Simulated scan of single mutants.
Amino acid sequence: MIDFRYNYPILRSQHQLLMQALSELEQDESYMKMAVPGGHPEDKKVAADWLSKPGFPIAADAVVIGCGGHHALSMIILATELSGGKVLVDPVTYNGFIGLSSMFNITLIPCPVDEDGLRPDVIAMLCKAENIKAVYLMPTIHNPLCYIMPLQRRQEVVEVARQFDLLLIDDDAYGFLDSGALPSFAHLAPERGFYIYSFSKILAPGIKTSYIVTPEKWKSQTENAAWMTSSGSVTLYNRLVSNWVKQGIVEKVIEEKRQAAAEKQRLAANVLKKYKYLTQVSSYHFWIPLPQSANARQFGERLSEKGVDVVTSAAYNVTGDTSYNGIRVALGNVPDEKVLTEGLMIIEESLAGLF
């Protein structure tokens, strides 16, 4: 089976990097002890420096360290007491957040999007009609729609959030692939913006470290949520990541992954040149819109029968609106170019029966 479902790219060189890093790790008894709530100060300082942008500094005290992206989302939901409330999302959004919302009894309110992302005017309209507590966003290389929200649109979203006192949850799973990444919602609205920066895709899914930039109002609750859900983060992983950040290794891996993703995108563009799809030049996934008349779930099943696994809009679609029919094709788990081409050709041939 050719796996276009999951998106955890690992470079061949990373295995040796891990072995080398473990052998060079300084001795520290803290690796075996209970973690410091929120993370050790030295690791939080590295995180803050890494996440700061010109004109948008991040204080080390604003960072809480978690155990990956899903853990970070769970921490934020618990800390802000979103359970039982309403959260505004894209009409097709990350299926992991859909699953967590179901577990926490959160009602998702879909908001229409355009090529720049969520529409601020509709956010305002929905907030007048519904008691919405927060907005969940993936503004840089959205999953699955791939859009990048421009700075002006981000600022407009912040204005609406301040008007209606909304929390902003910025999940930056794929932003590392955009070399011109814009300020996050934690940069633009630090009093209400949470920012999640997980290393699961940047480095590897086995590296369970995430940085959560947290508004001052919610800092103690977020640290408590980290403690109650996992007794804190994993100091060994955090120190490995800190060392790699300081040594420039994370930056190097990111650049190599951008180049690898761009090469995969060029290959996909050649195979799928007859069809329109949504992507970015260095994204590890793309979104193929399907006709409203198509049954996306059945199309995915037919692809599986041919040896290709994708994720269909059935997993991402909040209300089942057929105007958002589509499939996400993830390229990160297929390192072999020949296999990648074979899988894309199966998709290309299968699309012919829909258009």
Score class of each variant (00 low, 15 high):
L236I: 14
N7D: 05
P190G: 12
L240G: 04
V308M: 09
S220C: 13
G300P: 10
I288F: 05
P57Q: 07
D165S: 11
R153N: 10
S283C: 09
N238A: 12
V271Y: 06
A260L: 10
P139C: 00
D172Q: 10
L340I: 02
M1P: 07
E348T: 03
L22Q: 12
S233G: 13
R302A: 03
L354W: 01
P190H: 10
D165C: 11
S52W: 09
S242I: 02
T229Y: 12
L18D: 08
S230L: 05
K273V: 01
N295H: 04
F355P: 01
A173W: 00
G326A: 07
A260F: 03
P91Y: 00
K306F: 01
D116W: 09
G175K: 01
A48Y: 10
H70M: 11
P205Q: 06
S231A: 15
H285D: 03
A189G: 08
I254M: 11
T235G: 04
M75I: 12
H187M: 08
E301S: 11
L331F: 03
L137S: 09
D28A: 10
I288R: 00
P37L: 14
G69M: 03
P183C: 03
L344M: 03
G193N: 06
P41A: 12
D171A: 05
H40S: 13
E24K: 14
A47S: 13
S293E: 07
L167I: 11
K246V: 06
G248Q: 07
T279G: 15
G332P: 08
H285F: 04
S102G: 14
I169S: 04
A262K: 09
N131V: 03
V46E: 02
S23W: 15
L51M: 13
T214P: 00
E348R: 12
S23H: 13
K306P: 08
M125T: 02
S83C: 05
M149A: 07
I106K: 15
M125C: 04
I123F: 04
D61N: 14
T319K: 11
K257G: 15
F355H: 06
W244N: 02
D28H: 11
C127D: 11
L137I: 08
K274L: 10
K53W: 12
E301F: 01
T80N: 08
L203F: 07
P54Q: 07
D3A: 08
P190A: 14
H15T: 06
T312M: 09
F199N: 04
A124P: 01
S52Q: 10
T214A: 12
D309G: 13
M1C: 04
V89C: 09
A62C: 13
I2F: 00
V213T: 15
Q265I: 15
H70K: 08
